[in-house]
Design a protein around this nucleic acid. Sequence first.
DNA 1: AAACCAGAGCGTACCGTTTCGCGAACACGT
DNA 2: ACGTGTTCGCGAAACGGTACGCTCTGGTTT
Lengths: 335, 335
Amino acid sequence: MAATIRDIRTQTGLSLATISKYLNGGNVLPENREKIETAIRDLNYEVNEIARGLVTNRTKTVGMIVYDIESMFSGVLIRYVGDSLRREGYALVVCDSCNDERIEADNVRFLLNKKVDGILIIPVSRKADFLLRAKEKRVPVVLMDRSFADSDFDCVKIDNRMAAYRAANYLLERGHKKIAIIASRVEYTGWERFKGFQEAMGEAGITVPEEYCKIGVHTIEFGHESMLSLLELPDRPSAVLMTNYETSLGAVMAVNESRFDCPGDISMMGFDDLIMSHVVKPKLCMVVQPMKEMCEKAVELILSQIGGDEKRPPIEISMGTTFRDGNSVKPLQGK
Amino acid sequence: MAATIRDIRTQTGLSLATISKYLNGGNVLPENREKIETAIRDLNYEVNEIARGLVTNRTKTVGMIVYDIESMFSGVLIRYVGDSLRREGYALVVCDSCNDERIEADNVRFLLNKKVDGILIIPVSRKADFLLRAKEKRVPVVLMDRSFADSDFDCVKIDNRMAAYRAANYLLERGHKKIAIIASRVEYTGWERFKGFQEAMGEAGITVPEEYCKIGVHTIEFGHESMLSLLELPDRPSAVLMTNYETSLGAVMAVNESRFDCPGDISMMGFDDLIMSHVVKPKLCMVVQPMKEMCEKAVELILSQIGGDEKRPPIEISMGTTFRDGNSVKPLQGK
DNA sequence: AAACCAGAGCGTACCGTTTCGCGAACACGT
DNA sequence: ACGTGTTCGCGAAACGGTACGCTCTGGTTT
C-alpha cells in the first residue's frame, strides 16, 4: 500500500543504497538529490521505522516506569519527560508499577521485549537486581528521583536530605521548637528527608519526641490521619513538616476539618508545588523540586547513553530545591 | 547477541517454519514441541517483536492523544487505558496536544509514522480532517470523551446533556431557582452540558439571566474568576453548577477565599470525582463520570477493530453518570 | 486396492530498511 | 601521461521473523 524505498528506486533509477544514504543525511549528487526529493513527494514516501529498527536495532522509543501513576508526582514527570523526548523524535511508553516490585520487574521485561532504546525509571524496589536484564542487553537505564546504594546507573534526583534540613531550619529560625514530621518509612526520598530533618533538629539541640515522628507511607490518607493524631496530642506541636505532596494534602485536609486553625494554632510546611496546592487554604509554605529540569536532565542522560558508542562511567546528578512562600507558618517571636 | 529463531533451528534440527508455527500456537508433534521448548530455554530465546512487526505489520502498540495532559481528567484516562492495554500485551504511547490543533495533527502523523496499531484520542479540533491520514492508512481510531458531528469513528463518551440536565434538576428540586453555571464555549463537553442545563431550567419555566452564564474555558483560573464575579453580583445566585473538574476546583477556591460560606450563602455542584475533590472543603456534591468503564470500553473497541478482519460500522457508546453526595447544597425549603 | 484426507513439516519468498566492499569517475599535482 | 586520492553509486547480503503452497505420511472410505 504505502510507498517503499523500492518505489523510489524505480522512479529515480538509482540504487537502494544511494537512496538510503540520502535518507540518512549522506552526500549524493545534487542532481540525484533532486530526483529523490521529487520522487518522495510524488509517492509521499515515508521511511518505515519498523524496518529501519530491524536492522539498526533502534526503535526510537524509550520506556518510563513509574512507581505509581496515581501519584501526582509521577504524572508531572511523565509530562515533562514526554515533552523532551518527543522533541527529539522519540516516543514514550509508560508503565505503572503500582508500588509493587513484582509488577516493576515485569515492566522491565515488557519494555525490553518491546525493544525500547532506553529505560527511565522511578524505582519501587530497593535493590537493582531486576534491572540486571537491562544491563545484560546493554539497554541504557536512568534512575529518577530515587537511587540504589551500590548500583552504577545514571541517576537524577534532588538532594532530599538538604531540602528537609533547610525546611526544618526555616521553622527553627521562626522560633518553632516543637516540630513534628510526617514522612515515610519505605520510600527512599521520604526517609532521606526524615534524616535531614533529624539532623537540623539535632544541631539545634532539640530531641524530637517519638510521637512527633509520623513515619508511614506517602499517601493522602497517611498525611490525613497523622495530622489528626498530632492535633490530638496533649502537647501539640507548633509546626509540622510534611515530606511529600500527598501527605501535604492530607494534612491540610485534616487541619481544615478540625477545630484548629492554620497558621493560628499550628504552622505547616509542605513539599512539592503542584497545581493542587494552589487550591487549598491556607497557602502552603513549601519546598519545591525542580521537576522540569530534572526531567530534561534525565532525557539528556538517556539520549547520551543511547547515542554514545563507547560506554562512559555513570553520572549521578543531585539537584537543589527552592522555597515557595505562603502564609502557613506563624513566626513565634518571644517564645 | 540474542538468540534467534535460526539458533533454535540449528539446535533442534527443525525448520524455521515449524518453529514459527509453534511460536504462534500452531500444532507440532509432541516430540518436536519438547525439543523446541528446551532449545528456547537453553538459549533463552525471545521472539523479536520488531522483526515480527515488519512482516505482520503489527507493533502491538497503540497511541493515545490527549487534549491536555495537564488536566487531571486526561491523566486518569491515561492510567486506565494503559492498564487495560497492558493486560492484552499492548504498549501505550502517550502524546499531548497541549490544546493546540496543530500539535494535535502533528501527533497523529507522529503516531502513524511510529506504526501504532490504533489511536485513541480525546480531540481538540472540532473537525475530523486531521484524522484522514489515519483512515487512509486503515489505522483504527476511537474517540474518547468528545466526538465529531459527522465523522464515522468509534466513540466512547458520556451523555453530557443528560448529566447536566439532572444536575440542574437536583438543584431545582431542592428549591433553588437562581442557578448560575460555569461552562465552556469551545469544548464539546462543556457546551453540551450547558445545553442540558438550559433545557432543565427551561422546563422549570426559569429564564437564566445572562450574567449567570459564565461561558469560557475549562480551567481552574476561569472557574475561579467566574465564581468571584458571581459572588459580587447584586442579585447573587443561590447555587452554581460547575461543568468540569478544573472549574469546580477554581470555584471552590474562590468561595473559600471570599467572605461567603458554602453552603450557607451559596450552594455548589461540581463535576468529576477525582482525588483532589476529597481535599477541598466543603465536600462537593458532584456528577461523576464512569471513567474506568469508559476506558475499558475504548480499549475494547480499538482492539476489536485491530483484531477484526472485516470492517464493521462504527460504534458510538454513550454512558450515564452518577451522583456523589456531599454537603455543598443547601435545601431551600420555604423559598 | 484405489482414492481421499487430515496433520505435520519444509522451502522459500517476502517485509523495508541499512551496510559493506568495491569499482567507476573525476580532479589534481607531478 | 600517470599514479593518487576523493567522491559517489551500486549490488547484494544481512536483520529476524511470517506465511504461502507444497510434499509426505498413514489411516479411513468406498
